[in-house]
Design a protein around this nucleic acid. Sequence first.
DNA 1: ACTTAACCGAGACGGTACGTCTCGTCTTTAG
DNA 2: CTAAAGACGAGACGTACCGTCTCGGTTAAGT
Lengths: 192, 192, 192, 192
Amino acid sequence: MGSDHHGNRYGRSEQARTAVLHAADDLLVEHGFAGLTIEKIAAKAGVAKQTIYRWWPSKVDILLDAYGPDQARDLTPADLGSLDADLRAHLATVASFLTTSDAGAVYRALVGQAQHDPVLADRLRSTHLADQRVRDRLPFERAIARGELPSDVDIDAAAQRLIAVIHYRVLVTGEPVDRSFTDALVDDFLAQ
Amino acid sequence: MGSDHHGNRYGRSEQARTAVLHAADDLLVEHGFAGLTIEKIAAKAGVAKQTIYRWWPSKVDILLDAYGPDQARDLTPADLGSLDADLRAHLATVASFLTTSDAGAVYRALVGQAQHDPVLADRLRSTHLADQRVRDRLPFERAIARGELPSDVDIDAAAQRLIAVIHYRVLVTGEPVDRSFTDALVDDFLAQ
Amino acid sequence: MGSDHHGNRYGRSEQARTAVLHAADDLLVEHGFAGLTIEKIAAKAGVAKQTIYRWWPSKVDILLDAYGPDQARDLTPADLGSLDADLRAHLATVASFLTTSDAGAVYRALVGQAQHDPVLADRLRSTHLADQRVRDRLPFERAIARGELPSDVDIDAAAQRLIAVIHYRVLVTGEPVDRSFTDALVDDFLAQ
Amino acid sequence: MGSDHHGNRYGRSEQARTAVLHAADDLLVEHGFAGLTIEKIAAKAGVAKQTIYRWWPSKVDILLDAYGPDQARDLTPADLGSLDADLRAHLATVASFLTTSDAGAVYRALVGQAQHDPVLADRLRSTHLADQRVRDRLPFERAIARGELPSDVDIDAAAQRLIAVIHYRVLVTGEPVDRSFTDALVDDFLAQ
DNA sequence: ACTTAACCGAGACGGTACGTCTCGTCTTTAG
DNA sequence: CTAAAGACGAGACGTACCGTCTCGGTTAAGT
């Protein structure tokens, strides 16, 4: 069957892997990034420290593993039939994800740590951020297919101007990012 | 006389203070935030750990002290006679400050750490970020005074949309922020 | 079939058994008792750890297995025709065995470990030491049979006084135990 | 005053030092040499591990420090006025020390460990064993001064033959070493 | 000049977490 | 059923820093 064993030569324990990811997630949300230690993850997951070090070089690698699926699940924009609706819904989702979800807390911690760690920054950008950029393009690509937008529009630039402000407020100024704010962003963009 | 003493009851040693600030700055640039320890700052500054703990509660407080003057010196937008010129110059200055200067490295470290430390985030926002927001308004305020912009324009919103993209690329995506990019931002804004 | 198999339903592998004993012996002599780990024995013997744990409870049990035959082979006193000759030869053999042979190194390690481990001490005494005590009596028993000694002599006490000094110098003081020393012991004993 | 401080540049804490030595002693007696870990010593002594590593390279160094004074205190032979009395008393004291005292347990552990560690063996011999050899000579030196023995007697050899048997029984055979046994040793020696 | 008291350097202290090592157990696949 | 292989939970290792403390020396204002 392949996954519910205690450890053998033919592969790692899926049980231990998920226990570690969940423990890391919980501890980050409860005690913050500084309170997230390998020691505590191991204790909470009921796992030996060596098992963690065997599979993850550091605690940020655990967070990277834990974050990936959440992002794909929560940040894929739905097709609501129009660019206006798609963008309003997606920006509101992004704002809520970043400010209120556990996965958003993991994301903020990773971006924070990336400021101190260029290797992490590279990994984060080449994996999760690149993945998300593809998802952020979807509303625009669908709008072009519908004929709502000309086909030569610079999608990445447009998406970035909308997404950037949300991240800036979340990561830097700490100002709230509510529905009226994200709707205003869309209004401005569509009025252009 | 007030600054070159080894210690007495009537005040702290200015020599020790500046040695600590410079040591912290150097260590941050050389070894990154994780390599910045009180122990190493003390050793590099030729100062006792207790002297550091007497005056700064933590290493981020040292960085906050070290950062303040740099920001005011480097990020005040000059008056070049027109909104167009002022914005082009200011955004280019901000981009260069954030990506290439030592003070920019300190800023990025502080914003990074603020993701893990809400108290630091509050302090950063209520002091340095609030100060900078005032400076970022200057081009717009001068434009209103010149009659280039109507007096009811939402300055903070306008400034934020321009500044946010630069921060997003610096802090999150790591994309370069060169002169042509900042100029395009200004073009877009003025065309609106 | 009997001995050269890789693991099957017909019993343990003699090949694995001897490989373990030899690997343990080698590692003890090369790297000392602390450098003798089950992990290293398994690696050197080309055997799985579990195979060792299946057959030996601990590393000292491996050493006990390895030691037994050596002692019987090397420490049985020959009959040279007289008490004087027998004792001189035997004590010299014992001294040389303890100080220079690989088996002597194993013995010293076992006695050393027995100081920390009462269970090992008991096992060592009830097996190997009891066996050796029988062998150490032989010169005296032959001397009584020859009429060189009265039949009521306390053989164990006599043997112990001679053997003890050799062990003391080997285990405690580290002083050399050369032929002149053992001969002097015999001289003293016979002059009594 | 010089000894009751918490730690500063002018010297180590005597309080921490004695707490470590006592903890090590207690743990050895309670849990044996294998159960004696730096971790547990630190915990029991209420001391940081680093404090132990600062002053002692290993746990055997702690035991060496702890053992020294005990040996000098307990194993110095008193002058009872005659060789016969001095020897009987001293051998009985040695036997009792080795078999029943806490310090004797430390000694046995050190000698046991010395079988695995030549560096420890050298240190033990050049310090504590050399010191004890001096004390073991005292009854004989006093006997020569009294005229009980000729001045050319080989004191070290004589002392060793008596002492060795006790150590052999304690360290190797585990046989009891009671007063009648040590008295018989003295009888034999004096009858010679 | 002398006292006084805060500040200075140095560094030992009790701790926490690190990342590594080895232990003895458990689980799988092959013969 | 035994074997090899190796992942597992457990826990001690020795190191690095943390933030606190105590010490003796330095310095300058107030006697």
